[in-house]
Computed example of a mutant assay.
Amino acid sequence: MIIKECKGFELEKEKSNTSEDFFNRSIVTLYEGGEERTLHVLYVRYFDEVRHEFTPYEQDPVFTLQDQEISFKDIVALVCLLKNPGLRSRKRLYINSKQEFASYFQDINFNKLPEIFLSLKEKREYELRSPLEFILQPQ
């Protein structure tokens, strides 16, 4: 599987009676089996504020590579895909439970995530051989 893009953004209200401004969208675009797919993860924006409860990240951006700042929104869909590779066949995932959201970040090797973004910056892709490389294994 080749990862082509990871990014996230805050949704904005299109109409005054909608609740879009309470949500963020994170996307990961991948290429597999001759087909390009994009997974859109829509989640409650509040989870960004409590990320320190289930990640080592205290502030946003969560890390900086050279001159590129990587925000928490940029990694959410990627982490979901790494934790559950079966999501690569889905187009959308909606998460409104803090417990479900936190479960995706459990046992993730956060020290390896910059490797993906560095490759995306330099080569415009990252070859993911096994998602297990990003999951902490019991000792």
Rank of each mutant, 00 (worst) to 15 (best):
L136D: 08
F134V: 09
N17P: 00
S97N: 10
E20D: 05
F117C: 04
N17W: 12
Q68P: 06
F63P: 00
K73F: 08
Q99R: 12
E69P: 15
K83F: 11
T38I: 02
I116P: 02
I27A: 01
E49D: 13
K13D: 11
L120P: 00
N109C: 09
K15T: 07
S26G: 06
Y46M: 09
Q139A: 09
Y31A: 13
A77I: 07
S16L: 03
L128A: 08
F110A: 00
L39W: 10
S71K: 12
Q99V: 14
E122Y: 01
L42D: 07
Q68V: 13
G34K: 07
Q137Y: 04
L118M: 05
F105E: 11
K98F: 05
E58R: 10
S89R: 09
D21Y: 04
S16E: 14
I2Q: 11
D74V: 14
S97Y: 07
Y57N: 12
F47L: 14
D60W: 03
V76K: 15
D48Q: 15
H40Q: 11
V62C: 01
N84M: 13
E125M: 03
V79G: 01
Q106F: 14
E14W: 02
G33T: 04
K112R: 07
H52P: 11
R88W: 02
K4L: 15
L78F: 12
E115K: 01
